[in-house]
Amino acid sequence: MANSTLSRKSLVLLLGLVVLLALPPVALALDEAFFISLFSRILIYALAAVSLDLILGYAGMASLGHGAFLGVGAYVVGILAFHVSEDLAIPFLPGAWTGTTSAVIAWSAAIVMSALVALAIGALSLRTSGVYFIMITLAFAQMLYFFFVSLVTYGGDDGVNLEQRNSFPLLDLGDDTRFYYVCLAVLLGFIYLCQRLVNSRFGMVMRGCKQNETRMRALGFETYKYKLACFVIAGAGAGLAGALAANQSEFVSPGLMHWTRSGEVMVMVILGGMGTLFGPVFGAIALLLMEEILAAYTQHWMIILGPILILVVLFARRGIYGFLAGDGGRDG
């Protein structure tokens, strides 16, 4: 029994991986290049969703402000590129640095900045828990949203355009197929990292906190520090997703950190299967495809999506991945 469910899970994952790997050549052969950019976007949101699941599903922290880190990551890339194209020194930084379009530097900066923002927001928000935590993370994300709206230099409400995507040495990201594979590689790398993380001692402490934080404290763990570290890692992951999102659309705006975005990412996690590493990927695929398909039929697609969400919450508890992979769907 255990063996057969294990193989069912492996089968689902293998099939998913084959589909994702084969997508660009198939899409090109069918002359539907649109699917490559659609699925690049899906992979990027999957990355954000996996990072949210780390705090939501494994550590039990319901954050409704994850879009903030997505936005910070994207703005780091956007602002660095903006200063290159305007040949303008970045204010408040030592030395007259005029930005960069190097992917290595810009993406690292995006990860570091979003981690720092997560550290600040987490340090305050984690003083509370439960429903307070939901509202506070939401409020801080909204604060950052208004902050970026008020940055007139960087387009305010309208955001900034990137002249071109960031560049790797020897690798041209301007090509959609290559960019797709970079997104896929980043996503798989992050999932691998999370797998190592949730199965480590650190991960066990996190899951212990989700079950019963008081007990973990009684066992002598400083749960605040563990939770904060987890929150920062998740923020960094979302920041990387933001950096990719900025490159994908070659455009950055405060809309990325609007609270509906945080809600969407949360929906992806629940829809796919909370507390699993691959579930959020299925959730991202399902939600964004559903949006595309419904939008093709009617411009009022949200009137269908809304009730679907309510039904999912009421009746489909385990999510898509739990449904596909059966009882063995738990990762780690």
Partner: peptide, 23 residues
Amino acid sequence: RDHLDQVLATFGLILFFNELTSI
């Protein structure tokens, strides 16, 4: 239910009401 379920279901309600109003 968990607060998370409440957040999601009422998020669905918002989408529904916003679109209904727009229609």
